[in-house]
Amino acid sequence: TEEVEKIVRELQKRGVSQEEIQRILKRNGIDPRDVEHVVRRLR
């Protein structure tokens, strides 16, 4: 989703690792598959 993408991009800008990003998003109830998808697209 748009929202997830924004969050991921923001965290990446701050130098947060992929694993940490995924952990944060999972904690916020976001589907890990969505996270994977977004992270892969932004690489």
Score class of each variant (00 low, 15 high):
31 D>L: 02
26 K>Y: 13
29 G>L: 04
16 V>G: 02
26 K>D: 09
28 N>I: 14
40 R>L: 07
37 H>W: 11
7 I>H: 05
23 R>W: 09
31 D>K: 03
28 N>M: 14
17 S>Q: 07
10 E>F: 11
3 E>K: 10
36 E>C: 14
3 E>G: 06
15 G>Y: 05
10 E>A: 11
43 R>F: 15
17 S>L: 07
28 N>E: 13
39 V>N: 02
3 E>D: 11
7 I>R: 07
38 V>G: 01
37 H>S: 13
36 E>G: 03
23 R>Y: 10
38 V>M: 05
13 K>R: 10
1 T>D: 08
27 R>M: 12
1 T>K: 08
7 I>C: 04
28 N>H: 14
3 E>M: 11
26 K>V: 15
11 L>K: 00
23 R>F: 08
20 E>Y: 06
8 V>E: 00
32 P>Q: 04
27 R>T: 09
23 R>I: 10
34 D>A: 08
5 E>K: 05
5 E>A: 08
26 K>A: 13
41 R>E: 14
35 V>K: 00
11 L>W: 04
9 R>E: 04
20 E>T: 08
5 E>I: 09
3 E>L: 12
12 Q>A: 11
29 G>C: 06
12 Q>W: 15
21 I>F: 07
36 E>P: 02
12 Q>H: 14
27 R>N: 12
34 D>P: 01
20 E>V: 08
31 D>Y: 01
5 E>S: 05
42 L>G: 06
27 R>E: 14
19 E>I: 09
33 R>Y: 06
11 L>E: 00
17 S>W: 03
27 R>F: 11
9 R>M: 08
24 I>E: 09
22 Q>H: 09
40 R>S: 10
35 V>N: 00
38 V>K: 01
14 R>W: 12
15 G>P: 02
27 R>D: 13
38 V>E: 01
15 G>L: 05
30 I>E: 02
25 L>C: 01
26 K>Q: 13
5 E>H: 05
30 I>K: 02
33 R>N: 08
13 K>V: 07
19 E>G: 11
36 E>R: 05
42 L>T: 03
33 R>A: 12
33 R>F: 05
15 G>S: 03
32 P>Y: 04
19 E>L: 11
19 E>N: 08
31 D>E: 04
19 E>D: 12
10 E>M: 11
4 V>M: 07
21 I>Q: 01
30 I>A: 07
8 V>Y: 14
39 V>L: 15
23 R>G: 08
5 E>Q: 04
12 Q>L: 15
43 R>P: 11
22 Q>G: 11
33 R>E: 09
15 G>M: 04
43 R>C: 15
13 K>N: 10
26 K>G: 10
25 L>Q: 00
2 E>T: 06
19 E>R: 12
18 Q>T: 15
4 V>G: 01
37 H>T: 14
25 L>F: 03
13 K>S: 10
5 E>P: 01
30 I>S: 03
16 V>T: 07
41 R>D: 14
4 V>T: 04
8 V>W: 09
40 R>E: 15
6 K>F: 06
8 V>K: 01
41 R>A: 14
30 I>T: 04
3 E>H: 10
19 E>K: 11
5 E>N: 05
21 I>N: 00
6 K>V: 06
32 P>K: 03
11 L>T: 00
15 G>A: 03
19 E>Y: 12
3 E>W: 13
2 E>P: 09
33 R>D: 10
35 V>Y: 13
8 V>D: 00
40 R>K: 10
23 R>L: 12
16 V>R: 07
3 E>Q: 11
15 G>Q: 04
21 I>T: 01
8 V>C: 03
43 R>S: 14
38 V>W: 08
6 K>E: 06
